[in-house]
Deep mutational scan, measured.
Amino acid sequence: GTEIELESKNGQREHYTATSEDEARKIIEKAVRRGIKRIELRGASEQLIRDMQEIAKQIGLQYRTDGSL
């Protein structure tokens, strides 16, 4: 699965493990709508990382991946 670590603007951290790319995408989209400061992805697919970079650029988000592409 993909591990997703979120940090909201007030510094609250949340951790999710998505079993599918679809689920990961839903978690990320929800977080973005809620207003999130930072997202870290571990074990994400190349496609998901590309999507994440696109989203991050659009809304000026900090993100990090573990680089295991």
Rank of each mutant, 00 (worst) to 15 (best):
H15Q: 08
R38K: 10
Q53G: 06
Q62M: 07
A24Y: 02
E3Q: 10
Y63K: 15
A31T: 02
R38S: 11
G43V: 02
L41T: 06
Y63M: 15
L6Q: 02
R34Y: 03
R33D: 06
I49P: 00
D22M: 10
E21V: 08
E29V: 08
G67A: 06
D22Q: 11
E14W: 06
I59A: 15
K30S: 13
Q47P: 04
E46M: 05
I28H: 00
G1Y: 13
E14P: 01
I55P: 00
Q53W: 12
A56F: 12
D22E: 14
Q12V: 10
D51A: 12
R13E: 05
L48N: 01
R50I: 10
A31Y: 03
I59T: 12
A44T: 02
E3D: 10
E54V: 10
T65G: 11
T17L: 12
L69S: 06
L6T: 10
H15S: 09
M52E: 00
E5L: 14
Q58S: 12
G11H: 03
I4M: 03
I39Q: 00
G67D: 10
R64K: 14
T2H: 04
I27M: 04
A31Q: 04
E23W: 04
D51N: 06
A31H: 06
L48Q: 02
L61Y: 05
R38E: 04
L48V: 03
I27L: 08
N10T: 12
S68V: 08
K57V: 07
I49R: 07
K26G: 09
I55S: 01
G43N: 11
A56N: 02
E54H: 06
L6G: 02
G1L: 13
E3K: 11
A18T: 09
Q58T: 12
R25L: 12
R42K: 11
G60P: 02
D51R: 08
E40L: 14
K30I: 12
D51Q: 09
G35T: 02
G67K: 03
E40N: 10
I49N: 09
R64I: 15
I49S: 09
Y63H: 15
E54G: 05
E21G: 05
V32C: 10
Q47V: 07
G35S: 05
Q58R: 12
R13S: 08
I4E: 00
Q47K: 08
T19I: 13
Y16D: 01
S45L: 03
L41D: 00
Q12K: 10
